[in-house]
């Protein structure tokens, strides 16, 4: 039934289009249009361009102001304050240029619309004008670049030595996260050691790996330097956390990193947004296959004390998976058991 209605509707539309075509062609011939003149449509279109300008700018301003909160992501990192500042400076500069140029572009066709008696101004060039609008954008751009460049260099600089190091690994279609454990240092890993349980390919021949723990959420301390050490094991993923203005690709074979200072704990943010169930989310932002749209991981920002408490309460992965003791070289097993917090000796 709906198919028939749709069919009739389509036929009607086609009929109308043919009618417009035929009628306007006939009228055009009757009026001798195209010989010398320009018909009424010229003025109609010119007026419409101006109306479009007014209407769209009204809509633009209204929406941008009324819905500011829906597109402004609350900020929760130190460097994010700098990049947000840059964003809005750029917005102001480009906004002014946008308004002026669009207004001129859409109003000129109305002011200077065709009149038979008018003659256009023969004005082929003016070197001074050309020079001005080459140099002015050049200067403005230079200023924007320099501020952006300084911010970029700071953000991408080597992480401070006291940073909390957290390893994040992307794979189809989830994240895995590893902390250094009691010694605070991440042990080695190798993709050839990966299996269904040891998803991160942790190398237990490395002493630093024995106390590493792999939690189900990311915890980071508020106000401290945090460094994400990022890698991937199958295809490219991207570690993206909008609230922290943080993004870095996870590339198989090329370890990357990103360091930042979280400024608001999850609790702070819950208060600020008035949303009791608020959570910081880690998002995959590089196309990686079927499950790309659902690679979610929660980031919890704790007060430093809570973070230490949480950190100390975590159990080493080796302790939770004692089968992997067999991967530890014979001579290291005793030490491994101690650093993994396993009571008594196994074997």
């Amino acid at each position: 039934m709906s198919g028939i209605v749709l069919g009739i509707g389509l036929l009607l539309v086609v009929a109308i289009i043919i009618a417009i075509f035929r009628v306007s062609t006939l009228i055009g011939i009757a009026k001798q249009e195209g010989k010398e003149g320009v018909g009424k449509s010229n003025k109609v279109n010119a007026v419409l361009l101006v109306l479009f300008l007014i209407g769209s700018l009204t809509l633009l301003f209204w929406y941008s102001i009324a819905n500011f909160d829906s597109y402004d992501v609350p900020l929760a990192s130190e460097h994010g304050a700098v990049t947000d500042q840059l964003f809005w400076t750029t917005m102001t500069v480009t906004g002014i240029v946008f308004l002026i140029t669009q207004a001129l572009l859409l109003v000129f066709p109305f002011i200077y619309r065709y009149k038979k008696t008018n003659q256009a101004l023969f004005y082929p060039d003016n070197n001074k004008l050309e020079l001005i609008w080459t140099l002015v954008p050049a200067v403005v751009l230079t200023l924007l670049i320099f501020t952006g460049w300084k911010a970029w260099v700071d953000i991408m600089d080597k992480a401070p030595d006291d940073s909390e190091q957290i390893e994040i690994m992307g794979y189809q279609f989830a994240w895995a996260v590893r902390y250094g454990g009691a010694d605070g240092e991440l042990g080695g890993s190798d993709f050839r050691l990966i299996d269904l349980d040891n998803r991160m390919g942790v190398d237990f021949a490395d002493r630093k790996a024995h106390d590493d723990f792999i939690p189900t959420e990311i915890h980071v301390p508020k106000g401290k330097n945090v460094e994400f050490k990022i890698r991937a094991t199958d295809v490219i993923h991207s570690v993206y956390a909008p609230h922290f203005r943080l993004q870095m690709n996870a590339v198989p074979g090329l370890p990357t990193s990103f360091w930042f200072v979280p400024t608001k704990s999850t609790a702070d943010m819950r208060e600020e947004t008035g949303d009791d169930s608020f959570n910081y989310e880690l998002v995959c932002n590089k196309i990686c296959g079927r499950g790309h749209f659902a690679m979610r991981y929660i980031i919890v920002v704790d007060e430093p004390d809570d973070y230490t408490k949480w950190y100390n309460s975590q159990q080493a992965w080796l302790k939770l998976n004692p089968d992997y003791m067999s991967k530890v070289p014979e001579e290291l097993r005793e030490v491994a058991a101690i650093s993994a917090g396993i009571d008594g000796t196994t074997d």
Partner: peptide, 19 residues
């Protein structure tokens, strides 16, 4: 790119525009 835009605008300025 900016130069191109400004030149288009100046071309329209004081033209006798046929839409």
């Amino acid at each position: 790119s900016a130069v191109k835009v400004f030149n288009y605008l100046t071309t329209l300025w004081r033209g006798n525009i046929v839409l």
